[in-house]
Design a protein around this nucleic acid. Sequence first.
DNA 1: CCTACCGATCGGTAGG
DNA 2: CCTACCGATCGGTAGG
Lengths: 196, 196
Amino acid sequence: MTEQKIIDAGLECFAQYGYQNTSLSDIADKVGIKKPSLYNHFSSKEAIFLRVLEEVAQKELEHLKGFTEYTQDRSIKEQIHEVFNLYVDHMSYSTEGAFFKRFTFFPPEEFADQILQVFLNTEEQVIKIIGPIFQKGMDTGVIRPLQLNELTSTFYTMIDGLFLEENFYDRETLVERQKASFKIFWLGIQAASQEG
Amino acid sequence: MTEQKIIDAGLECFAQYGYQNTSLSDIADKVGIKKPSLYNHFSSKEAIFLRVLEEVAQKELEHLKGFTEYTQDRSIKEQIHEVFNLYVDHMSYSTEGAFFKRFTFFPPEEFADQILQVFLNTEEQVIKIIGPIFQKGMDTGVIRPLQLNELTSTFYTMIDGLFLEENFYDRETLVERQKASFKIFWLGIQAASQEG
DNA sequence: CCTACCGATCGGTAGG
DNA sequence: CCTACCGATCGGTAGG
């Protein structure tokens, strides 16, 4: 279906070039039609962008919900590490991640409200997944007593930092940084009695 | 001097709107001249951008060098905390920080090489400042034995994450996140014998 | 430093 | 879904 092709092409162009830097001709070329034909499916460039944003938001939430399946029957540390790695990898190496990164960090003014909402929904979803794991860790004495939002916000800040750095470093360096961050994060939150 | 006014106006516009989204008319308006008059001082839009980039890079390095003065005669933890706060605050609340953030994270293709170079120089400078402090911390047994680049890269990743998040949260929330990140970072790197 | 203007490209429309 | 075209805006130039 052409409409879906336009959304897919828009996602790739917007993720790679940004909003202003993507022309309707770019999208049309990728779909294999002429620019004016886009208007049979969408009323404006803004409308295309908003549909892409909508799809990305929905896909992200679904993708995140899938994380819970991976983290059964593992130690607290392994569960946290798994969510950490899954999320960083997804954000670093998928087109949706690139789109999400670009537009949550530098939203065009006219879409700022909708984009902020998507960001906050996503963070809420991540905290819904990771929060209970941290809480259980504290309850069982594996994690030192800290405020839950200290744990979740630091967790999130490290992820934000890592997928920013994806813009500069080669994959090997990134993997090293990812390992180092998680290592020090875990050393910081583990209960003193667990050291060894 | 008009040339300096153009550089200053360019800095503000590029930082706020990005490269493509800043027109030469925007810059000229801010300076108080007409667009063609810009060409008495610069040969192209690219030339203006590159001069702005050059200035920002130079200012950043000078600013970072000033950090060393703040960190005399303090404990290792206080020194690290001070550099952390100074750097995050500077990147979050200055125009140079906004410029630096935007263009190191999403460089226009035609400037990618120069921008990457500026980023790497800056990181090198930060590591030059913070590296010896970490090393001394390990040597004196205040910081647990870790690889130096594990310390510096995690330190840098947290800073990257925080000044990304500046785009979403109000100042109060940011200050809380900044505190939480440093707290857990320090817990992660301090020697076990220092716990209390 | 200005007015006047250029070719190119943009988002979008007319009309079929 | 196309060709042909619009008004606006862009970076940049001519000429004074």
